[in-house]
Design a protein around this nucleic acid. Structure first.
Lengths: 205, 205
DNA sequence: GTACATCTGAAACGATGGGTCCATAAAGAA
DNA sequence: TTCTTTATGGACCCATCGTTTCAGATGTAC
């Protein structure tokens, strides 16, 4: 949100905080505590602003969450988008899984994945948020499916493979890793989980 | 909890509801809405009793949840315990994964798995519950590890396989399936995810 | 400077959270 | 019956929820 003039061409008092930094802070609170579990008091405290400023800048809790999820998908998940651009499908899989493991065990990051635990099971009043997160996860699956379709055209993977099924399978792996992370699995442990899969796929180094 | 006499050998007014049925109802509410997301009002309404009776019979919300999780682990997860008793390891894996898919797509069941979504990311005050669920999941992993160790002794799986790693890997698959279920995956879709894995393992029918 | 627009801080809003109280009901024991 | 014990219903508790309000602060435009 850049500088705005109102209908009279006048401006008012400028923002006294960094929206970007505030949203980053909010994202991490949602990441750790989920949508329902994060309170406005915790959020605004972490953002370093008060309630009024938050409501003026971001709308309400649900809109703040949506913005946080967008930021997460673009920023924190960048290694996944990068992985999709690897030349061979084998490298796509290797980069995505290795990247995910590193991400899930990065010190300073909350455990787990916002896309999975942000709103997996919710209170009745947060059902729309839960549904939104389903769509976010399906969106990730879709991006992978497209990459698989390319790989199939290139003959990198067997012709009898259904790209939708294959994409769903790898999404399952990523979600499973996220739960492992919450379980407290170390980086080495998660790496060994990935090695098992890469071995089955004949995708080892 | 059967009939009890107090210290004087006297009895009082008997329970006016079926504890078992009430706990079953509570379990399903937690299953659908998670620990934080389920309110006492929703719980007692589903249980068909009022707050006083609930607190007298089950303690508080956290104890009710613990009892619900126990019930879930024994009742709903029975097919997993049964799968562990299959003769060959191949049959263990096949029965567990097929059973999980059926379970996760049973009409009338909430979507997903209580063990995964009951308290994956929580409010600050529910952290002990979150930790308890980590232990529950690790317990499942442990049971599988023991079965894998047997299979290894019997020479059913390669000697260079680490049972802990292998158990963690399969737990990952199960958790991933649970997320797929929340995503709205159909039974057929989840079955195809499992088929892909069974194919990689050379465990097809 | 004055006028206007926006932001900020703190207090307050009604609703709902989990949990408790207490008068009454319903049983067995004496 | 009477006594004792436990269960029940519903009002009630206080804390906290997300959100709003508003007076004052702080900026730009004229």
């Amino acid at each position: 949100m850049s500088e705005k003039k109102n209908s009279n061409g006048r401006m008012g008092r400028p923002r006294g905080f960094d929206e970007d930094a505030a949203l980053e802070a909010a994202m991490r609170v949602f990441w750790e505590k989920s949508y329902d579990g994060a309170t406005m008091s915790e959020l605004t405290a972490a953002m370093g602003i008060n309630r009024s400023s938050m409501y003026a800048a971001f709308g309400d809790k649900e809109q703040l969450f949506r913005l946080a999820v967008e930021r997460y998908a673009v920023g924190q998940m960048s290694y996944l988008h990068a992985a999709l651009r690897e030349k061979s499908f084998k490298e796509v899989v290797r980069a995505a899984l290795k990247g995910m493991v590193e991400f899930l065990s990065t010190p300073g990051n909350p455990r787990g994945c916002l896309s999975v635990q942000g709103a997996l099971a919710t209170s009745a009043e947060s059902e729309s948020v839960k549904q939104m997160m389903v769509e976010v996860r399906k969106q990730g699956e879709l991006a992978l499916r497209k990459r698989i379709q390319e790989a199939k055209k290139d003959g990198e993977i067997p012709a009898d493979i259904n790209p939708s099924d294959y994409a769903r399978f790898f999404s399952l792996i990523v979600a499973g890793l996220a739960v492992q992370s919450v379980n407290g699995a170390t980086r080495a442990e998660m790496q060994r989980s990935v090695e098992i899969l890469l071995g089955l796929l004949n995708y080892q180094t």
